[in-house]
């Protein structure tokens, strides 16, 4: 293994990116066709083209409604959430110099869960539940940043510790809300939300999520060269001319934004942010120049794939959070035990 090359050639990288794009596009189309209510390929083309060209409808109105109001939001969001969680996971792994970091390391997920549970307890609308999840996720990370700012000692360690502490505070809060929630309707709603699901997402959920995701993903993409240097540690990065505070701050804010937006619309979907970046590391190596785009695309492909399984495998829908854990954990074990690793 000592002689193994870990440098990816530009040609190979291009092939991988193109391959992922093709896989994403293919899955995108396939996802429209799959579902409880079948939409045949001919009708699918008709409906889509009918939006641009005046075609006499040969499909049912129900098909069109399902396509645009049910399937489209779900497919788009699955891809966006997967992309966001994977990008945030990869970014956090770099910032914290820790391959085991995931998007919930600063408590973003626990905070969102608390906000959503609170909203359910107060009987708020679905819209408000999403908003509460998003806002509480941001509040939690802001708290973590504040506490770690006050803490003495190593910045990264205090960030991680503050993340664990504040995160478990909020998760205790969720437990308490579950305790006092009405067991006939609120408790199941909270439990279901915590499992994570893209079922029932609407068109306006896309609008809600896509803006913070874009605001976060763009800096994550462009800061990837500096992120490389940050993985070497604060002092070394600083002597190489990286403004460590600024870059880490920007990466944390961007990652939090995309994580919060993802969790708010989809609930708790674990493993994606940990497993997908590692899969991408196998594909393209550890250089964030290649790793970040590869993680983003793999995340989108992965979650879209799993979401299709989640809504088509059984007669009843399986919450996607359960599936990502079922798929993610064994897959991760496979990755770390496989020979010829790229680490």
């Amino acid at each position: 293994m000592a002689n193994k090359t870990v440098q990816i050639q530009p040609g190979r990288y291009r092939m991988i990116i193109i391959g992922l794009l093709i896989a994403l596009a293919g899955l995108f189309v396939l996802s429209f066709l799959l579902g409880r209510y079948p939409i045949p390929p001919r009708e699918l083309c008709g409906i889509l083209l009918g939006k641009i060209f005046p075609i006499e409808p040969f499909w049912t109105e129900r098909m069109e409604i399902i396509l645009f109001n049910v399937r489209l939001p779900r497919i788009v969001l699955a891809a966006c959430v997967g992309c966001s969680l994977a990008a945030a996971g990869a970014a956090y792994q770099g910032v914290f110099q820790n391959p085991m970091a995931a998007p919930d390391i600063l408590g973003a997920t626990n905070g969102a869960a608390f906000g959503a549970a609170l909203a359910i307890l107060w009987g708020m609308s679905k819209r408000s539940i999403t908003w509460m999840g998003f806002v509480f996720s941001l509040i939690t990370v802001a708290l973590v940043l504040f506490v770690s700012y006050k803490a003495k000692g190593k910045r990264i360690l205090s960030l991680v510790l503050a993340g664990i502490m504040i995160g478990s505070l909020f998760s205790a809060g969720v437990s308490f809300i579950k305790l006092v929630a009405d067991p006939s309707d609120q408790l199941p709603a909270i439990t279901y939300w915590l499992m994570g699901s893209l079922a029932g997402v609407k068109l306006n959920d896309i609008l809600f999520a896509v803006i913070p995701m874009a605001i976060g993903l763009i800096p994550l993409y462009f800061l990837r060269h500096q992120l490389n240097v940050l993985t070497l540690g604060d002092d070394e990065a600083k002597t190489m001319g990286v403004n460590v505070k600024w870059v880490r701050g920007a990466v944390i804010v961007a990652s939090t934004l995309v994580t919060a937006a993802s969790v708010a619309v989809s609930g708790v979907i674990g493993w994606v942010g940990l497993v997908v970046p590692h899969l991408a590391r196998r594909l393209v190596g550890n250089n964030y120049r290649y790793l970040m785009p590869a993680s983003m695309l793999s995340g989108a492909v992965f979650l879209l794939l799993v979401d299709n399984v989640s809504r088509n495998l059984l007669a009843a829908e399986i919450p996607i959070g359960i599936l990502t854990a079922f798929v993610g954990a064994p897959f991760f074990i496979y990755l770390i035990t496989r020979e010829g690793e790229r680490y």
Binding site: T239, G241, Y343
Partner: peptide
């Protein structure tokens, strides 16, 4: 600034074990 200083003084640390295995080139 740290950037301006880095353009004037470069640091060569003792060799270490970074968290992620980069290629020599990278």
């Amino acid at each position: 600034t740290s950037r301006a200083l880095a353009q004037r003084i470069a640091y060569v640390p003792q060799y270490h074990y970074p968290s992620f295995n980069f290629s020599v080139y990278d």
